[in-house]
Nucleic acid binder design. Structure first.
Lengths: 253, 253
DNA sequence: CTTCTGTCTGAATCGGAAT
DNA sequence: AATTCCGATTCAGACAGAA
């Protein structure tokens, strides 16, 4: 089975997965930011925070954005502890974060037992400039390993900086990631391995995983996005197997 | 006087500066990282940690790299508190950091009274790739303000990501920054303002400040680098005034 | 002037020997 | 037994000199 999708709470679903069953955890938890004070954070929904007033699209809201920083770190630590158990030794964690939460996220991942290895930058060239300020056009990706890195098992050389714009057409989720970036990131996983995303959203991580030949396990809280992710993953699987058919049936070189 | 340079301890020198006398603080403190454990951090010099084994250059060592993380945060908080006092309302702080210290640095700047505004990325395309890993090729720059940002006083639009290699020829300091990056960063300071760097090193911040028409106050602990910075700044001032002479004396358009 | 070729370096990382 | 120290490893990009 190349992919499975669970609708439900991340912690409960992770608890049901066996030890050492996953090669990489790649996820983008709700950043819980957008306000510098607890009041500012908790009084607006994700949509109000992340979608410009003049944006015409109508993307659904998502939960998990109304915790204060302490609760957020506590919640994430619990999940990352479970994710660590579920991951094979020398497996990898990639965790998207914005600048406000970068510190809390690195605390949480280390508290969860992971060895922090570095922070990558994702540069969005289309971000909106602001007068008298620096443009806020980078998000960050913490990466970590379960124990030592096994470079022999997966001898890849990967970049530390990615530049790509958020998808505009056919965007299903407010914070949807570009597939081309995700396709590079998943390569940290050894060939044929299994990738887990416990905040799957519209399923971009899974799409990239399938395209690169990995198995995928997704967990998503809302019914709405579980459905969207199912459709995208099914369609991707169809594409991939069609290509394989062609390769198998194609003319010998 | 377009620039002044003090040799001495950052905290002592800052204490001697008057309130509200500086428009921007731009600095690159020792990162105090480069080891997996506290022991490893504190037992090696900066040169041993950061200079590749096969590097043939002979750049001088620099101090401040042997604190544990707690002392480092304490030390930086004290200095940034003084720097906050010395800075005019709506003034700016730019603080270079690597991924390991980014969290401690944002804690310290906020504890020092500054309002954290974002984190910029400096991408170094020349960094060394590593098998089975992501290349460590970004450093980060926290930016913060003393109270509200005054966009009317300095209506600039600045990028959030910079890509440039470390200087190779004529490099004076192990961690010397490219002048072209610093020339962009200093523009966050209103025209004609004064820029302070309390870890001046070889003086690149000052060089960029003078080239962009700002005044500069530098503090550097070692005699060795104070001398080098003095020479670079004097030379830069000569260049700048020569250009001004030419502009004044040049043919009318 | 380009284009090509060769050399060198990097705020690195790790294992294992030496103390 | 725990720490400290030394050296091997790695390759894209920058630069210099030749073609």
């Amino acid at each position: 089975m190349p992919f499975s999708l669970h609708q439900g709470d991340a912690l409960s679903v992770l608890a049901s997965l066996p030890d050492d069953s996953v090669d990489a955890v790649i996820t983008d938890p709700p950043y819980n930011s957008g306000g510098r004070t607890a009041k500012e954070r908790t009084s607006r929904t994700a949509r109000q925070k992340y979608v410009s007033g003049d944006a015409a699209h109508a993307l659904s809201d998502f939960p998990g954005e109304n915790m204060d920083q302490r609760s957020f770190t506590f919640w994430l630590t619990q999940i990352l502890t479970e994710a660590h158990r579920v991951t094979r030794p020398s497996g990898t964690l990639l965790l998207f974060t914005d600048w406000r939460q970068a510190g809390s996220m690195s605390d949480a991942l280390q508290a969860g037992g992971w060895t922090w290895r570095g922070t990558l930058a994702w540069h969005k060239p289309q971000a909106r400039p602001q007068k008298g300020r620096f443009t806020q056009n980078c998000e960050f990706i913490h990466w970590a390993s379960k124990g030592a890195v096994d470079a022999e098992r997966n001898p890849v050389y990967l970049p530390g900086m990615y530049s790509a714009s958020q998808p505009r057409k056919d965007r299903k989720h407010i914070t949807q990631k570009p597939v081309e970036v995700m396709r590079e990131l998943v390569k940290i996983c050894p060939p044929g391995g299994t990738i887990l995303d416990f905040c799957a959203g519209s399923g971009t991580t899974g799409v990239a995983a399938l395209l690169e030949g990995y198995d995928f396990i997704g967990v998503e809280k809302t019914k709405h996005y579980t459905q969207i992710a199912t459709e995208r993953l099914t369609e991707t699987l169809r594409q991939v197997s069609r290509q394989q058919d062609y390769t198998l049936a194609g003319p010998a070189e």
